[in-house]
Amino acid sequence: MISRRSPIRTIRRALIGLPMAILLSVFFFYPLTDILVMAFQPENGDGFTLTNLSRFTDNYYLGVFLDTIVISAAATILSIILGFPLAWHLHHATSAHKRAFWALVTLTPLMLSLVVSSFAWILILGSNGLVVPVIRTLGIDVTSGLLNSKTAVVIVTISSFISYMILNIYSALQNIDPSIVRAARIHGASPTTAFFRIILPLSTPGIVSGSAIVFAMSMSAFVIPFLIGGGRVKVIGLFVYNFTVQLYDWSGGAALGLLLFLLTIAATWAIAVVGDRLTPWHRRGT
């Protein structure tokens, strides 16, 4: 459609976005530009260099990048698997009370400070915590406890960010016309078939957007790997912190931060592309 809005209306519409634009440009884009510049400057502050970036291309750092991606991907995939049933439950809550209760359960992780919930997890996963004795009775050797491992970081990451997954899937489920499911049932689909052929494909947009959020947040996570990983789990977020706060190497921190930022954008874009492939019916048409 050709837009024939009057210029005044266009300006008015633009004005609505102005406060946010100012906020973003002052408090986000400006420091971001600063970091961008810093990443390409030698440590003495003048000129242009790529050495800040190139020092992170060795095998050690590639391993850290890989670990970060693996932890984030695992947390994302497990969030889908664990989050879907919860979203389903929320979607099928019959009374307002039940829905409110499950919504509260879903949102609780978002209301807690990451630091507080991480310490709670330390108590749970530590060698004297709730979980370790149980695992020991099963005959599995966990002398050192579950903390300070990638597994622990993944578990806590899931518990902290799964709410975003649940809410996104829930809203996708809410958007499915119940008659569509009935149409599948009456024309011969069992409940299981209807789920896999109708409900699951139609909730893909929610899964995709939830995945993008959980993945991006896991990639940039710092508090969880710091407290739960105990220095043994190495992710990029931790190194950015180490470079800036401990080593006072701001150029290194900036370069690493920039690489993490680019990687996260690329991954999110990839998720969006995959999501687009999975939902061809959204793409076509008018």
Binding site: D177, S179, I180, R182, A183, A184, I186, H187, I198, P201, L202, T279, P280, W281
Partner: peptide
Amino acid sequence: LGMVFQSHALFPHM
């Protein structure tokens, strides 16, 4: 049975 719905209820992804 066969059924026709008020909201059409076609499968949007097919």
